[in-house]
Amino acid sequence: MKLNHPSGQAAEQRALQFLQQQGGELIVQNWHCRYGEIDLIMQFGATIVFVEVKFRKTGAFGGAAYSITPSKLVKLQKTIECYLQTYSIHAPCRLDAVLLQGDAAPQWIQNITG
C-alpha cells in the first residue's frame, strides 16, 4: 500500500533509519494482505520483528501510543499470521511499535502484545 501523506512517509523513513541504527535489517516495507498492512518487517539477529509506526505532531489526545487500539492489535496479529504462513516462516518473531511525536527522538516499544 502506498502512503499518500508526506508526513506518514517521512515518519516511516525516520523509524526505518532509527531501527537500522539499532542493528536491524529491513526485510520489507509496507507489506499488505487482505487483513491489513505491516509498516516495516525487520530482522534483528534470528528474530523477525514486525513494526507498527505511529506519528503524531503532538502528544495531545494521548499521542502516538493512543492510536494503537485493541482492534488494531487484532488486525496486526492476523496480518502477521498471514505473512508467516505465506512465506512458511518458523523463526522467533515479535510485534514492536516505533512512536514518533513531532521532532522528539523515536520511542521504540518492543513486544507490544506481551
Rank of each mutant, 00 (worst) to 15 (best):
M1N: 14
L3N: 09
N4D: 14
N4M: 08
N4Q: 07
N4I: 12
S7G: 00
G8K: 14
Q9R: 08
A11E: 08
E12H: 00
E12V: 10
A15E: 05
Q17N: 10
L19W: 04
Q20A: 07
Q20H: 04
Q20E: 13
Q20R: 10
Q22C: 03
Q22D: 09
G23E: 11
G24E: 01
G24C: 11
L26M: 08
L26H: 06
V28F: 06
Q29C: 06
N30A: 10
W31I: 12
W31M: 07
C33E: 11
R34T: 13
Q43R: 09
T47W: 02
V51Y: 04
V51K: 00
V51S: 01
E52M: 04
F55M: 05
F55A: 05
F55Q: 06
R56T: 15
K57S: 15
T58N: 11
G59L: 04
G59T: 04
A60T: 03
G63W: 09
A64G: 01
A64E: 09
A65C: 01
A65Y: 09
A65I: 06
S67V: 14
I68T: 13
I68W: 05
I68F: 15
P70F: 08
P70S: 06
P70C: 04
K72P: 00
V74C: 03
K75S: 10
K75N: 00
L76H: 05
T79P: 09
E81K: 15
E81P: 05
E81F: 02
L84T: 03
L84Q: 09
Q85A: 14
T86H: 01
T86R: 07
Y87G: 02
Y87N: 08
H90S: 14
P92I: 07
P92Y: 10
C93L: 08
C93I: 03
L95Q: 02
D96G: 03
D96N: 06
V98D: 07
Q101K: 14
A104G: 06
A105G: 01
Q107G: 00
N111Q: 13
G114A: 14
G114F: 02
